[in-house]
Design a protein around this nucleic acid. Sequence first.
DNA 1: AATTCATTTATTGTCGACAATTAGTGGTTT
DNA 2: AAACCACTAATTGTCGACAATAAATGAATT
Lengths: 226, 226
Amino acid sequence: MALDNPTSQAAVTTADKVFEQMLHDIVEGNIQAGSKISEPELAKKFQISRSTLREALNRLEKCHLIERKANVGSRVVECSISGLLEIYIVREALEGMACRQAAQNMTDIEISEMRAMLKQHATAKALRDGIAYYQEEGDLDFHYKVILGSHNQQLINILCGQLYHLVRMYRCQFGMNSPRATKAFDEHSRIIEAIADRDGELAEMLMRRHIAASRKNIENKIAQQQ
Amino acid sequence: MALDNPTSQAAVTTADKVFEQMLHDIVEGNIQAGSKISEPELAKKFQISRSTLREALNRLEKCHLIERKANVGSRVVECSISGLLEIYIVREALEGMACRQAAQNMTDIEISEMRAMLKQHATAKALRDGIAYYQEEGDLDFHYKVILGSHNQQLINILCGQLYHLVRMYRCQFGMNSPRATKAFDEHSRIIEAIADRDGELAEMLMRRHIAASRKNIENKIAQQQ
DNA sequence: AATTCATTTATTGTCGACAATTAGTGGTTT
DNA sequence: AAACCACTAATTGTCGACAATAAATGAATT
């Protein structure tokens, strides 16, 4: 067995790299939401053939970041308020369940790692009063860890593999740094305690409320603007 | 605007047709679960180029029916008991939420259509004592209608677009026709009533129990076998 | 002037061939 | 005999070109 890859990490093809670059560009808004994707143009930009580009586009489509119509072409998805709320609904259901499963399936080591992470976030937060930091990176870290802790491959695939890129895209496009940072932190720590107590029912309920609170926060904002 | 397509249905490419054929073959088990997919072999079988075949494979991958590794190739997914249970967990969460949303968003017309469907299933069931029929087709119909009734595009995409092919595959591979047919029918009708009452909370709870009951039914079967 | 239709242009879908990587084979060494 | 290595064969990734479809342009008609 000849391993070209001593660290046994999966091979990375050209299409992979282009995918990651475009993923970044779309999430950050460098490629505008709703814009049409020209295959010849992008292939030229990346100095690759259209076949390779289309391979990358297929992966973006898997993440629901672009939409393709036969014989017509691809467009970057639009970011609408209703679309954002739809995602929150899905997250409430899926992450709630992930949290219940995490309470059941996480190892003690994983739990202590989560506690350590939260503690580190707390100090970072106090130090820099880094609301923005905590809101963006810390929040995602926390949710990721819970999802992985479910040990349910389907949940992990759907949430981490596809939905979370969309979540990140919305955060960037709408510039979301709500005043919920400190409140969110408390909610996170209560969720971890429920997981540590192996109380799946409570853990699910807390996670659902946590996500629903974010959603309602947005709904209220929208209502005020009108 | 020149429409070649008077019925305004989306164009169907060669890759689409190959995808649908392979989807059928994998779900029905004609292409064995866990088996390796040889691109040259399949391309020859379908009389198409590898590019077109790979386009079809990409769509199968989106449905989580095959798994690809760079520079290695594709395999049909394995059907394991643990994998089946994982899907039930996801369905419990997502269809539960879909049901809640359906109670909120379904039109009165959609609701009466669902009632009509259930009534028709009831007569079909009585007529033919068609347990198998109801279990397979009727059950899927019911769940589909609820999901669509949520009017949440993300939920619809995930459940109808990708997860349900896997569900069908497992049903075929494991030959699932449980003795829950009549019980399931009653549960379905209670769920519809909750939706008609616009009681989202109850509707979600009933749907979750409905799916959880199926899961536990399987878990018990497995436990007995050991 | 607006609409319709035919023509042209551009984009997407599909093809076959080559390059890069992996899997398989046989020989060599300990 | 088992493990290692070089070599061959097969498979996957990538490329450029052609065919099929959709969009854009402009001329003709009402």
